[in-house]
Design a protein around this nucleic acid. Structure first.
Lengths: 339, 339
DNA sequence: ATTGCTCCTTGAATCGTTTTAACGAAGGTT
DNA sequence: AACCTTCGTTAAAACGATTCAAGGAGCAAT
């Protein structure tokens, strides 16, 4: 493998000049530049990333830490990140924490060891200790799908409080008064916000008939977990509406209810969250709260990268997207409301 | 940030000894080792990956190049890779080619520039030129879901020929004689194999009533693409069975047929491929050919990593998994066969 | 007392870049 | 003719680790 020294020799210039040809071509006389470029091509010279990084402290690598890549919402988000990174010739190291705080800490350490330039993360809990630690090591941070609490960092998120209220309002409008809320872990930031939104929406209903709701917190926001929990419920199912933490949960719920011969949306309305592609093609097409997952990732990556390109004039931003209600077939008017 | 020199000074040993403490602790007197470890802890010393890699030519990074991370099959595969990597303290750079050969080439170059130790790839075409190029640069390769043709590399794949024949045989057993095969690009290796399998199965049917089939090749193996193509078909739909290149296509096909008031499986049987999680919860639960996606990724990553750990005693392996038919509700006996 | 072994430890070279101060040549001003 | 500037290029010093030949200490055998 050729190195920069070989190129210099063959082009009859010094080693520093070759480096300039690569990194600041505007400094060179165009004749010299051309000559060097020709040699580079000829030798198929590829600069050694480690050497470069060692000296310049930039390696064009960013880390992406997510709770669950199996969830299409995060897959799409990751795709957004990848595309933004690719456009700026960055590369992404993907880390999947499975929603475990411990794995998150470990991955952050691994990324720090790899000297990544920045980390994009959807943290699993509200605690910022490890994140602060990472920032101290001089690694840039950007939060995705979550706002920073007392942390110097950019963030791109969706208004989950509003999303929660959208879901509840929709069900309430349809006449549902007894609602089951089935979410992920109680300390998961998105979960906290969505429940807040649900509560706020309930409070804002001046009617005497404000709905009541019961919460279930799952360990993992997966189809399987949701399915099992609903299947194993031994009390009679007397809710008419279900608000799910995401579409995977909705799929699990729908399946379990189906097995109990409860039909959707005739007997029970189910509303999901995220509006993943599969929501359209599920057993019952799922009404869902849509989030711009791809844009979320893309924007966050852009922010993080631009911070690196010109740290001096960078100001941390906080970008908020608004979720939207997408109505499909899994929700309908409550029986009590029908003629 | 502390460096190895600081540690050496504080521990009162030479710099080389600290390096040994980290990389070959068995060489040190245990008293020295302990002393150094204490200092490392105290200083929160983290070895600089670039410096380390520059000298030792190992950076514990591998690349994973896939055609479509939105497809749960590849997501699961990626998860397998990640988990195997994580276990060996490796890190994965994920690259999504969108099935484009051009993007594949570009990503391979990016990975080479990053000095990754090895690359796991599901190549988009049969051509090995770029791969051979990569191998020449001294980067280890392992093929996933594809066997190497004249390439020195490990490979882990599923017998797609058998998978294709499984699908056809199932439909034939159910009495289907007019079959639509709807796949991805014609030069996509998996597509080639599956069609071969279908043809072989047909040939092996001695019956006079061997089924006939027509092929469609989609540009992208996505729900959307499949849906649009079927929707826009202007000839009458006179097939009784459909074999799809993957479950996403099956979902698209089912949706489009639904809109044409063709019911599944009463009028038409549809069989998917991959057996992704969502196959169970689709509008009609999809009969599919199951592949061990997670294991595929996990095994391939293990092979690639083990090759790096001991290159001298490594022999390239070729591991083959067998697909399985999973019967759900999207296939049934052909009308002509029913009483 | 010398030699030979073993076991740890050291010092210096090295990996392949980037960076920066300094330098020479060419051209323009006084 | 002497002096500035500007432009392009160079030489050498980092960056922070790994690696390896060589050195030293301690001990046993001659």
């Amino acid at each position: 493998m050729a190195n920069i020294r070989d190129v210099a020799q063959l082009a009859g210039v010094s080693l520093g000049t070759v480096s300039n040809a690569i990194n600041r071509p505007e400094l060179l006389a165009s004749s010299t530049l051309q000559r060097i470029q020709k040699v580079i091509e000829e030798l198929e010279f590829v600069p050694n990333a480690s050497a470069r990084n060692l000296r310049s402290r930039r390696n064009r690598v960013i880390g992406l830490v997510l709770p669950d890549v199996s969830n299409p919402f995060y897959t799409d988000l990751a795709k957004g990140v990848n595309d933004a990174a690719y456009a700026s010739e960055y590369v992404v190291i993907l880390c999947n924490t499975d929603g475990s705080a411990q794995k998150e800490v470990q991955y952050l350490d691994v990324l720090a060891r790899q000297n990544v330039e920045g980390i994009l993360i959807t943290p699993v809990s509200e605690s910022n200790l490890t994140l602060a630690n990472v920032a101290e090591r001089g690694i840039r941070l950007a939060l995705v799908d979550r706002f920073p609490l007392g942390l110097q960092a950019c963030s791109v998120a969706v208004n989950d409080v509003y999303g929660g209220s959208l879901a509840l309002t929709h069900l309430h409008d349809l006449g549902h008064r007894k609602i089951l809320v089935i979410m992920g872990k109680a300390d998961f930031p998105q979960v906290v916000d969505r429940i807040t939104g649900i509560k706020q929406a309930i409070e804002s209903i001046v009617d005497a008939d404000a709905p009541e709701f019961i919460k279930i917190h799952l360990d993992s926001m997966s189809v399987k977990n949701a399915y099992e929990v609903i299947r194993d419920m031994n009390s009679p199912f007397d809710f008419t509406g279900v608000i799910c933490g995401n579409d995977l949960i909705a799929i699990g719920v729908i399946r379990a209810l189906g097995e109990k011969n409860i039909s959707i949306p005739e007997d029970v309305s189910v509303i999901g969250y995220d509006d993943i592609d599969f929501a359209t093609s599920a057993t019952v097409p799922i009404t869902s709260i849509s989030q711009p997952s791809y844009e979320l990732g893309f924007t966050a990556a852009e922010l993080l990268i631009s911070e690196g390109e010109s740290p001096e004039k960078h100001v941390h931003q906080r970008i908020e997207f608004q979720p939207k209600l997408v109505i499909r077939s899994s929700t309908a008017e409550a029986k009590s409301h029908r003629p």
